[in-house]
Design a protein around this nucleic acid. Structure first.
Lengths: 207, 207, 207, 207
DNA sequence: CATGAATGAGATTTCATTCAT
DNA sequence: CATGAATGAAATCTCATTCAT
């Protein structure tokens, strides 16, 4: 029988989650700087002081959010990369999962992007050390899959680091479109396109 | 009779450029919110009031910067798309130009990214309407090139909008890497990779 | 039948003492304003609410502490002033007692000083009415001893109020040194010096 | 002709002085913690932001005040110690100067006390490093005077450090009384008493 | 026009105190 | 009684913007 947390602790965690949910909403819609702690408190129906009981400061709240987002996504994405099947099948499933996952968690996806892609130009002041480290795990896993595919002569012999970069760039572009202009195309089509462009030739060489 | 600008006017424009240069530096390094008007004034060796004489407010200054960045890049990029040569050659040259252009203008590139790629999740509050519009011109030009290539059976028959998305995603990923971790690979290699991945098959189908 | 305190009451008093001990430590080290009720609660291993059950508010807690400190010191000091012996002997013993008493109760001494010496400029907002009143008793007792010494022609005919002031100023200076830089000199030497300077001539008149 | 400061700079300094005057008043009456920056701003008829233009933060404002107070007092006190006359005459003049100086600058005197005497028990968070260092100069000067007096056999052979401690304790006690209960006695009497008690015998030895 | 001191709204953070469990 | 989560007033500090000189 797992150690049952006290009611106090359960409530505390529930409040924590409520605050995080509101913060996710506000940060993803208005951005970090434009969201005031008072805004979060009001929308979450808590007093400002309560936020500070549960999170060291505004940065810590943001970090918790990012960490949570990156962890959840990373978990799902690494899971599909370790499923059975050929390297190409697994990469295909990675793209599909990414598309549906992000499409279903738009606010989280926005934060995920802000931290993984964008990190660097709009420096959210190094709030992301830990999150970045987690994301890197997905990347190195992808790299391993490519490397293995190349060894089996399933994939062209290109520096796997660059293949990872390419796959991420391509899929992010599509997923980003999916999120920001959801009416353009359904998720499956987007995923298909990533796969087509990435795995098939675009150039009708010779033909 | 073309109105010869007065000395007054020439000085004014010179001061404007000096301020923009400093602002570009600070915004690209510290971000919009973390850069204070006083910082810009000090580093540009002007008084705060002067900035407000030349730019409506902080947003206007930022917008002017973005506009300038996007315009300069757009001009260079649309130029290569209208050069002679086959569609494939022109697209290849687009990628090469983008890589060198961005690599040589890192601060500008960062702002360009923040506004084109990131636009949406890190909402600098619609500062970018006009800039976005200009960028769209590059995109529609790319689309036209793809469309023409498809018509000539040079390029696979995929929705050209999606091809644009793919090309931008892929090339941005490489260019971003080039900018943020310049030691990884030289610009030419990056451009080559974009082209290889995009135009050649990755999947060693049947072969 | 003298009301035998219940176990409840005994525990209550014990908790009170524990809290006071922690508060003494924190207040004397960090000062009143910089010490939070939560700090005291945590270090005393009680909940904040408990502090408020036992003390009206933060001021009351501080007052209780001061009162306790002043009472304990006052008791010891008035005791020596009522011992047998000449006025000079009793004053000498007063100084000695003060030196050892303070040296052995440094945290308490700091609060005692803050309230008796410092009272006035670092206004802890009249937290000290009662404590001050108790301290005045020591002062008036000293005054009586001086008065009596003067009457017996043992002590120079100077306004006894001023002699008290002088004695306190002198002894406090030494005791303070003793407390803040304990390595300088041992307590007995300090006491001797107070006595020498106060009772003997410094000026080698005529000699 | 000394470099004439600009009008701008003169005004700036004037405002600085006005703010310091108000801060002195409030800090000396209500204490550091109980005085809000907004209080100072309001009473000085400036906006809060202006205080922060002229002083880094609240601590810096306080430090400037203390430093100013300690410097002014120290200057006057070291001056009298270097006047011509015997060691005893100079020490006597030191006491007199101290009495009048403090009596005429009560708010400043309170801050001076808070930093020199009180420093240690109510730790105003090390705001006073520099001020303390300046005060130490007065003390070492006093010590030199005592040492010289001892060498000339004008003063009893007691550790001069201790004589300094005694003189300061005694004179502070009287000056403090003068400040806090000004009705008790006029400044001259106080000074006389310090001298009498310190330099003459209290104890009617032998007589 | 240029200047930069002054403004004050607004953001973050702390902490004494209350009160439901 | 004990608990400690919740409260929210109040304090510190920042910075875009204005305007008198």
């Amino acid at each position: 029988m797992a150690a049952q947390p006290t009611r106090r602790e359960r409530e505390r965690q529930q409040h924590r989650r409520e605050i995080l949910a509101v913060a996710l909403d506000l940060f993803s819609r208005k951005g970090f700087e434009k969201t005031a702690m008072a805004d979060i408190a009001e929308q979450a129906e808590f007093a400002v002081g309560t936020l500070y009981k549960l999170f060291e400061d505004k940065n810590a709240l943001y970090r918790a959010l990012i960490l949570d987002a990156v962890e959840r996504f990373t978990q799902a994405l690494t899971a599909v990369l370790t499923t059975p099947g050929s390297e190409l099948e697994r990469l295909a499933r990675y793209i599909e999962t990414k598309a549906t996952l992000f499409a279903q968690n738009i606010p989280t996806a926005r934060l995920y992007f802000a931290q993984t892609t964008g990190a660097g130009f709009l420096p959210t002041a190094g709030l992301d050390q830990e999150a970045r480290a987690i994301y890197e795990k997905v990347l190195s896993m992808l790299e391993a899959v490519f490397r293995s595919g190349i060894r089996k002569k399933l994939i062209a012999n290109i520096d796997p680091k660059m293949l990872v970069l390419g796959l991420e760039g391509l899929s992010n572009a599509f997923v980003f479109e999916l999120i920001e202009r959801p009416d353009d195309l359904p998720a499956e089509t987007m995923a298909d396109l990533s796969k087509t462009i990435f795995f098939e030739r675009i150039h009708l060489k010779g033909n």
